[in-house]
Design a binder for these strands. Sequence first.
DNA 1: CATGAATGAGTCTTCATTCAT
DNA 2: CATGAATGAAGACTCATTCAT
Lengths: 231, 231, 231, 231
Amino acid sequence: MASEQKGTGGNGREGDRKSAILRAAVEVFATKGYHGCRIADVAKEAGVAYGLVYHYFKNKDELLQSVFHQGFETFSSKLRAVVESDASLAEKVRGVAEFSLDIFRDDPRTVRVLILQIARSTGNRGLNRHSAWADLIRLCVEMFQKAQERGELNPDMDPVLAAATLFGTIEMGLTAFVTGLFDAQDPEVLERAKRQLATGFLTGVLTPQSGAELEWNQDRSDTRLKTAKRS
Amino acid sequence: MASEQKGTGGNGREGDRKSAILRAAVEVFATKGYHGCRIADVAKEAGVAYGLVYHYFKNKDELLQSVFHQGFETFSSKLRAVVESDASLAEKVRGVAEFSLDIFRDDPRTVRVLILQIARSTGNRGLNRHSAWADLIRLCVEMFQKAQERGELNPDMDPVLAAATLFGTIEMGLTAFVTGLFDAQDPEVLERAKRQLATGFLTGVLTPQSGAELEWNQDRSDTRLKTAKRS
Amino acid sequence: MASEQKGTGGNGREGDRKSAILRAAVEVFATKGYHGCRIADVAKEAGVAYGLVYHYFKNKDELLQSVFHQGFETFSSKLRAVVESDASLAEKVRGVAEFSLDIFRDDPRTVRVLILQIARSTGNRGLNRHSAWADLIRLCVEMFQKAQERGELNPDMDPVLAAATLFGTIEMGLTAFVTGLFDAQDPEVLERAKRQLATGFLTGVLTPQSGAELEWNQDRSDTRLKTAKRS
Amino acid sequence: MASEQKGTGGNGREGDRKSAILRAAVEVFATKGYHGCRIADVAKEAGVAYGLVYHYFKNKDELLQSVFHQGFETFSSKLRAVVESDASLAEKVRGVAEFSLDIFRDDPRTVRVLILQIARSTGNRGLNRHSAWADLIRLCVEMFQKAQERGELNPDMDPVLAAATLFGTIEMGLTAFVTGLFDAQDPEVLERAKRQLATGFLTGVLTPQSGAELEWNQDRSDTRLKTAKRS
DNA sequence: CATGAATGAGTCTTCATTCAT
DNA sequence: CATGAATGAAGACTCATTCAT
């Protein structure tokens, strides 16, 4: 009794319940959408009492915000890591495709909510979210600008559009999985999608000089994309 | 007073009223979102009485469906026209980028609703919409499959992913405009975006053989993307 | 049918329903108190649908405000009429007692709500109400000030305190009825109360013999109550 | 850590905690009203944990009851002492005014709660309070009856109404302070108010010249207000 | 066709109260 | 004694939809 670690116990339990609610919210939002679900659904899914949701979250919207944060932070930190690395543009883009689909593989529900519920929300309170995404896009724009200065990005490609297109490519790729257009169960499919997404995006964006030698397939030698140097 | 205005108005402006409501719906949906607005908002925006909305539309959802239809038909018919033409894949993709951004230029509100409100809806009633988009995507998948058979599409690119990526590229490009990342007022910007979107997408997707000669800029000769044939 | 007076009909019905709700609110507030009743109670009492209450009143508080207004206006206008007349102070005070108890007789429910629910509310939004009463008190203060200048009010009586005391006397008199301390059914009792309230306030409760020479100011000297018999 | 503060605090400050809660309750009830505050507010104000309130008080209402009791007992005992003394009616009335305002001076918060929150409550559980006040009023009624028998109270004044009026006068006087109409800081103002309240109640507000001969009974004869100048 | 008053089911949110630690 | 997490009943408020005129 005396040895009861209040801190641990308290935190552990609190964390348990709170994250249970958070997980349930992801689940329910992903399934029924933000407007289509009731707090009661979340509580039931989490196996907690109705009011406890309000013990941890001020209201429904803050709950969504938290879900957003959780997912966004994961994506955001990885994106920053990749963008701020000193790899080549091609490697960075591959890295983005890589971790994006990995995140999806590991937690498709959250990605689903991010993609379908939050990314495109028009709500008035969406400012935070919007600006959050906007920050990331800006990050990418800078990446493309520098790449352009270094001669990696085609000089005719607008860096802003490049950034938007990268996000669009990634997002729609994810959407293809989210909506079931692709079989998300098969890890092979996922891996192939990574490469195709990145390479597809890259060989269009890169200067012929820097991008000429990119390989389409890296697992089987015979399916390589053989590009000869320009004269 | 004797000359009843209402009668005249009523008889002569059937279409007026209905399309006024439709236009108002586009406006309001685009601004506040489907769930964020009330029928009353639409009625007020249209300058008509509350109940009249229900005179022309069975319910709120049907109103959204109508908005969807209006915009979708425009897009759908143009897409079919392009896809079913006997142009090359490159020309078709350029065509898609072309009319997509044109539609946006002419009616950004509707595009906004299509993009932000409908395309991503998870609602149970979304089946129709989903299948509608699914049809278009299938159309594109077929287009890419045939192109692949003809040797236009890189054999390593999954036609489904190619279709998804095309839509993603277009959509995110539009989103860049919709969200104000790009200046939608400047027609120059729009025109350039068309080319960049298409070329960016194409030179990554096409086989080197078929795509080698694509030009990045077609308005000023000196900014052309000069690609020499591979040896 | 053709002769349907839309204006009259519409107004009439609207007034009907709205005032039915208002009447019901008085009834329910008087019986169960503001916090103790639900909007559903009011709607049921009024015989209208739940939502209609919100059609006419923004929220529960505004409904209370309206009840307040209705009753307050009656009281306020009569008070002004009396105060602004050119009668003597005594007549004015009698007038106030007169119409106050009359109002109670005619609409005890409303008075009950005014006395028990609103007059003493501490709510943050109570400013309006407070200031409303404050206006009336100010009106009375002026009345007493002028009376004092004319030599009608005892020069040692603070006009503000006089006003407060008048209201206190009236209010507690009403409270005696409201709480059932007095028999509100008997018109005789009511009439007698009017006179006693006013006369008591005006000339005090003591018999002339015992109270005639009470001193108003005892500041310095002995604070004894000196009562000298009248001649 | 070894030197447990809690134990010490718990043992040594039983009364402290409880009365801290009680004091906090007075503060919060006075500020936000009984219905307008939450138990959490009281706990926070008292600087104790949520559940501790329920350790000392069965429920919210009992907390209010306790606040009521605390204040009521003070008032009640003093009132009994005054009423049961063998002073004259005038002296008793002065005594009531005296200690009433003194109590307010010493603990305005409690008086505020008594006046604004409890005295007028209509709640179902208000029986206790009601009957408590009723007892005091009955006490006063007896006082006035006896005074009437002794010829001190005007024979035309109903003892019940006299009691009600006395309370009304006192209460509204207090209200004038409570609501800030009067400056509660200035002890002079308070002292003068005591005298004016009592004397006003006892001898009326009119100047002897203007009000001397007002008739108490106008029942039968002309209901005119006959004012005869003093000889 | 047009109006807007009327309806009421559906949800969010609050908060008194309990209870395990 | 003390804590604050957990509970869930209660009720305010919204808004799509209907309907009488």
